[in-house]
Design a binder for these strands. Structure first.
Lengths: 182, 182, 182, 182
DNA sequence: ATATAAACGAGACGGTACGTCCCGTCTTACG
DNA sequence: CGTAAGACGGGACGTACCGTCTCGTTTATAT
């Protein structure tokens, strides 16, 4: 259940998204770039957002690695690092930021975003499980909350505040959450 | 330096944004709704994003109150509460989420978002100053970091995960940051 | 040399022509309505016009009766009557007018129209032969011319002038041609 | 109330109609050929048929001359001649036949056709008035009927029978109507 | 009865044109 | 003489059919 040139279409979709942004991503542009007729795209996906969501599912551009350094602090710093890279290092950042930004406005992409974060959390759980076994984490600690604090801060800093993030930020953020600020 | 029907234009802009979303917000729609010619809008603002940025500056829909409960924890919980309300309670939420979402794609709005968060931080600073005076906060604690962790988590939960947030979340998030999870 | 569901196809063709007009008659519509795949239609007829031409050949919706009242005048009036009915009484009129109108633009249908009128003329010849035997017609009179004058007038009135035609018109037209107006 | 390049649009419309037929007449084609954007055409005319109707009203390609030879027979022969020319001599014939053929299917064009024939009849009336004054016409003779017989026969012969028409036809047709065939 | 060929259905595709929406610019008339 | 109405070129939208193609699956007939 996929068009014959599905890969070209997805690739063109992500390329256009990365280079021209979400509003510059047009079905006509994708069609031209992927050597497919516009009709074919509409035959398979009802909207630009649905097409992009499908392309995002297929790509491994946004894949994450699950760190396992032996220390929760280091693992979390690595995760924050990965998040920073995801939102700042081209070409993944162009895709990730634009797609997450568009998810605000489009249900199909919102769903994709939910899957994206749910999938990440599933992998991150391993980190917390190991930490808990090592006694590095309180029993009451909530992994989703911790990751949302950290990842949310990265998003806010990078996208909303437009500030650059360095290694120190990762360390400081992780420290704040692990050790508290009071 | 403002058109005669500036208020109607801004109001129409925010109404359209709230009801139809960012993509449904069109210059033509604003013109029609505010009884002004499209040309007039283009004379004063170069783009939809700039118009919206201006409208956001003028509105008090997104204003915040600075809590002063006598306790940092309570103050932070109140701030998180406010953030949750901002992103979930209509009509402010429709405007705030759409505008912040669009800021990802549009420089003018990104600038507005930066001002928005800078302005909030300036007010929040009072909370931290008081807390520091009361000895509720380490000297090394970074207010901006703390607020980014908390506000970022709210954004991520509400917008990217699509999850509802309640009072417990505010308390838990503040506790994590204040007390640490290790 | 006909598809298995030929009758359904022809019926669907004429139905669509009658209800939606020539432009609303589409191969896809015929395929759907007749429970046949679009490919099958294209296997047998090269175009919409060819399909319609074939359907018209098969139908007896446009058949005529040859009058024989014993009087040329009465016979001609009956023929004019039949022509009026053909162009004004549904459902035949919907098909006949649309098909003849389309014949202007499409060679296949033009050929069908020529056959249609040639066939009618062959039958009408009997009327004139009898009249000539009865001495009701000059030797020099040209049956085709007479019929073209009468039938042409009906077409022009009904289709181009959009006027309703009644019995008096038939009588007056026949009188003009039989008796002259000078 | 007309677009700035109205003349170019009308000209392109009639050219395309003449060269490519009614179905080959496309709004996009007219737009391109007349150096106008498609949007502009839709701004002024709701459909292809309406555009064509407007173009036909403006053109003098289909204008007729009113003969005045001093004899009804000659005048009528001249009128039939003109009708034959209108339906057979390019470029007028391409436009006239296609437009009248399309009038069968489109209300706007049907209206235009009615005006066209009504206008012709108004001019032809002069011929009949003169003839009546000269005593060449019975008092009961109906000009519209006479013209419909003659013009209808020309249409039927040329378009539906696909036969060539010569001077003899004009003479014979006029003779039949003036003198009768009985 | 069964092979075999014709006919068919399913459905993807490139393509053209449709008619619409909105963009941002430009012309023009008027107050 | 500047402002505002609105006409304009332009790009993309999403849709409808077109006519073509490939590929299995019936369905009849002719051994």
């Amino acid at each position: 259940m996929a068009p014959r040139k599905g890969q070209q279409i997805f690739q063109a979709t992500l390329e256009l998204l990365a280079t021209r942004g979400y509003e510059g991503l047009t079905v006509e542009g994708v069609a031209e770039r992927s050597g497919v007729n516009k009709t074919t795209i509409y035959r398979w996906w009802p909207s630009k957002a649905a097409l992009l969501a499908a392309a995002l599912v297929e790509t491994d551009l946004l894949a994450m690695e699950t760190p396992d350094t032996g220390s929760l602090r280091k693992d979390l710093e690595a995760l924050v690092h990965g998040m920073i890279a995801l939102l700042t290092q081209p070409p993944a950042a162009d895709v990730a930021v634009a797609a997450l930004g568009a998810a605000v406005h489009h249900p199909e992409l919102a769903t994709a975003a939910q899957h994206f974060f749910a999938d990440r959390l599933a992998r991150e759980t391993a980190v917390f499980d190991r930490a808990r076994r090592r006694g590095e984490l309180r029993d009451t600690a909530d992994p989703m909350l911790i990751m949302d604090l950290l990842a949310g801060a990265v998003w806010l800093r990078v996208v909303f505040r437009g500030l650059p993030l360095d290694d120190d930020f990762a360390a400081a953020a992780v420290a704040a959450v692990l050790d508290g600020v009071a």
